[in-house]
Amino acid sequence: MSFINYSAREISCKIVYYGPGLCGKTTNLQHIYKKISPDSKGKMISLATETERTLFFDFLPLALGEIKGFKVRFHLYTVPGQIFYDASRKLILRGVDGVIFVADSQVERMDANLESMENLIKNLKEHGFDLEELPYVIQYNKRDLPNAVSPEELNDALNPRKVPAYDAVAPTGEGVFETLKHVAKLVIMELKQKS
């Protein structure tokens, strides 16, 4: 959960990118890391296997600016998408303030998307969170691929609540910052409501 430090005048919030294996969570973070100015970012940490699959998590700290005299920091995490890393995925959701679900738009990954979404709901529940109450945004990634399902179909399958959803092509950066910005706004609004 958010950490408000009155002494250092800082607020830190945790945002987690969730989704099936190879959907582009790490690519989202890599794009943000590449594009954001050096004074607004820390080091990006990737705990990955030798074949560059996420083993535990990726971590990217951002310090975007100030609100009401408090420095606002966002800590971005990804989870490992592969099914057998469920124990690790669960751990990363601890203390989450906002979630971005990255869906793979390819038709053959629809089952994987649905499975990952169910897994997200279940793992959040184990931490006492309800996805319905959490700042939450969906990203439909890989929109540039010829086998991409239409956004309407993706919405029907993955977004019954009609939360904000963004089309994206993570390697080119399309939709990456829009998604992050929206969830960051929701997180800060939540902080305001709780205060």
Partner: peptide, 11 residues
């Protein structure tokens, strides 16, 4: 929510 966020005062 289960865990309230951490708040740290100057003292």
């Amino acid at each position: 929510m289960l865990n309230p966020g951490l708040v740290l005062f100057e003292e």
